[in-house]
Design a binder for these strands. Structure first.
Lengths: 248, 248
DNA sequence: ACGCCAATTCGACGTTTCTTCGGATTTCAG
DNA sequence: CTGAAATCCGAAGAAACGTCGAATTGGCGT
C-alpha cells in the first residue's frame, strides 16, 4: 500500500506542461483519472471480514454508537463502556471487534469517507474538464460535512490533523483526499486552465486549506450559517482567482 | 474578558466601505490596530500566580517537560507520570500545578503563543499598510512554527481544531489569531487594497487555511522542505491574487 | 540568627477506565 | 441432530488518573 502511494508520487510531481502522455490526451487523462478514482474508492476497506450476519449487525451497531459517543464526548473523554452500552453489547464483546479504543476511533470515519467518494464518483461521471471536476469535488465535500455533521466533527475536529493517524489506513485515506485535488490541479494545468508557473501542491494547499478552514469554523460555531452556500461561493471564488492568475 | 471580545465583534463585522470611523483615518486605524494588538498580546496570561521562586522554576520545568512529552507521544498517549519524571518531580506535585492532564495540555501552548505575538508586535511597528502587516503576520507565523516545531506539533496537530478547547482561554487565543487576519483584511478593504465585494471572513479563511495547510503538511511529512520559503511564496502569491481580484 | 507560618513536595492510597481471559451461548454446515 | 467455529459476557487484572495528609522547605518579621 505504501509502495503504491510512493509510485503514485513519483508519477505525478513533474506536471510541467511539457510532460508527455500522462494527462494530455482526453483518453489518457480519462484513464489516469479513473485509475485514481478506483484507488481512492477502494482504499477504505476494512480488513477483517465477519462470518455471521449477527456479527455484521453488531459491527454496525458498534460503529454507529461509537460515532455518536465520540462526536458527543470527544475521543479522549469517550468511554468504551458507554459505546458498548449504546450499542447494546457488553464491554468485552466490543474487544472482539476492535483491539483498542484508538483502533475503533480510527475506523469509524472510514466508512463515511468511502461513501463520500462513491457519491462523488457517480456525480463526477458527466464532468469532463478538470475545473468542473475540482469544483464538484470541493463543493460536495463541504456539503457532505454539513449533511453528516457528527462524522465531520469526528474527522475534522479530532482526527484529521492528528499525528497519530500517521501510518494507518485512515491516514492514507485522508491523504487521498488531497491527492485528488492535486491530481486535478495538474490536469487543469495540462489543459491550460491554470498557470503552469505555480506549484500544484501549493495551489492544492490553498484550495483544501481554505475549504477546511470554513468547515472547521462551521463545525465549531455554526458560522457561516449555511455551509453549503458558503462552500459554493468560496470554491467559485478561489477557482476564479486561479484563472485570473493565469492572465497576469 | 469575554465581554471585551463580544464588543470587539460588534465593532467589526460591518466592514462595508461606508462604515465610518473605525479603520478609515490613518490615526483612527492606528489606534484600533494598537488596541487589537494590546488585546491579543495581553490575553495569554495565566491566572494563578506562584509565590515562591522554587515554584516558578518547577512550573517552567513542568511546561518544558510537558511540551516535549506531548509532542513526542501525543496528548492522549502521554502519561502524567512521564511528564512529572521528566520534570524531576513527583506525580502528585504536578497536580498542585494543574488539576488535570487536559488542563496542562491546554496551558502549554499559551506561552509560546504570547511570545509569537510579542515578536510580531515589535516587528510590525514600522509597517503601516494593512497589506504589509498581513504579509508579515502570515510569514512570521509560518516561520515561528518551523523554529518551534515541537510546540507547533502540539498546537497545530493536536489542539487547534479540537472541539474541547472550546470555552477555554486557549480557544480565545487561537481565535485571536484569526481575528488579527480578519481585522487586517477589513483594514485593507478600507484602504482600497482589496475588493470590497468579498466577505472579509471568507478572505481570511483562504489566507489562514492555506497557510495552516502547508504548515500541517510540513509538520507531518517535512514537505515542503523549507517551510519558511514555502510560506513566503504562498503568502506572496495569495496576496497578489487578492489584489488582482480587485481589478476584475 | 531564629522561629513561625504558609507554600511546596511527596509517598501511599482510592478511583476510574482500559483490556484480557476463560467459559457459556449461539449459529450454521454437514 | 451434532459438533465446531463464531460470538458473547462476567469477572478479574493492569494501567493510568487523581486525592489526601503528613513531611519538608522557603520567606519574613523580629
Amino acid at each position: 500500500m505504501y509502495l503504491r502511494e510512493l509510485r503514485m508520487e513519483r508519477n505525478m510531481p513533474g506536471a510541467h506542461p511539457s510532460a508527455e502522455g500522462a494527462v494530455d490526451a482526453p483518453a489518457g487523462a480519462g484513464d489516469a483519472w479513473q485509475d485514481l478514482l478506483d484507488m481512492v474508492v477502494s482504499r477504505p476497506k476494512r480488513g477483517t471480514e465477519r462470518k455471521q450476519d449477527r456479527s455484521k449487525r453488531t459491527e454496525q451497531q458498534i460503529l454507529n454508537a461509537a460515532m455518536r459517543v465520540f462526536a458527543r464526548d470527544g475521543i479522549s473523554r469517550a468511554r468504551i463502556a458507554d459505546i458498548a452500552a449504546e450499542a447494546g453489547i457488553s464491554t468485552s464483546t466490543l474487544y472482539e471487534y476492535y483491539k483498542s479504543k484508538e483502533d475503533l476511533a480510527y475506523d469509524v470515519p472510514i466508512l463515511h469517507l468511502a461513501a463520500f467518494l462513491e457519491e462523488f464518483r457517480e456525480a463526477v461521471a458527466d464532468k469532463t474538464t478538470a475545473r468542473d471536476r475540482l469544483q464538484l469535488y470541493l463543493t460536495m465535500s463541504a456539503d457532505y460535512a454539513r449533511e453528516h455533521a457528527e462524522w465531520a466533527r469526528l474527522l475534522y475536529l479530532e482526527i484529521w490533523p492528528s499525528v497519530f493517524v500517521s501510518e494507518t489506513d485512515l491516514r492514507h485515506s485522508i491523504d487521498d483526499f488531497s491527492r485528488v485535488v492535486i491530481f486535478l490541479v495538474k490536469q487543469g494545468i495540462a489543459e491550460g486552465t491554470w498557470s503552469a508557473r505555480h506549484d500544484p501542491y501549493e495551489t492544492a494547499a490553498i484550495l483544501v486549506g481554505g475549504l477546511n478552514q470554513i468547515t472547521v469554523t462551521w463545525l465549531l460555531y455554526r458560522k457561516p450559517r449555511n455551509l453549503t452556500k458558503a462552500g459554493n461561493e468560496l470554491v467559485e471564488r478561489m477557482l476564479k482567482m486561479l484563472e485570473t492568475e493565469a492572465e497576469t
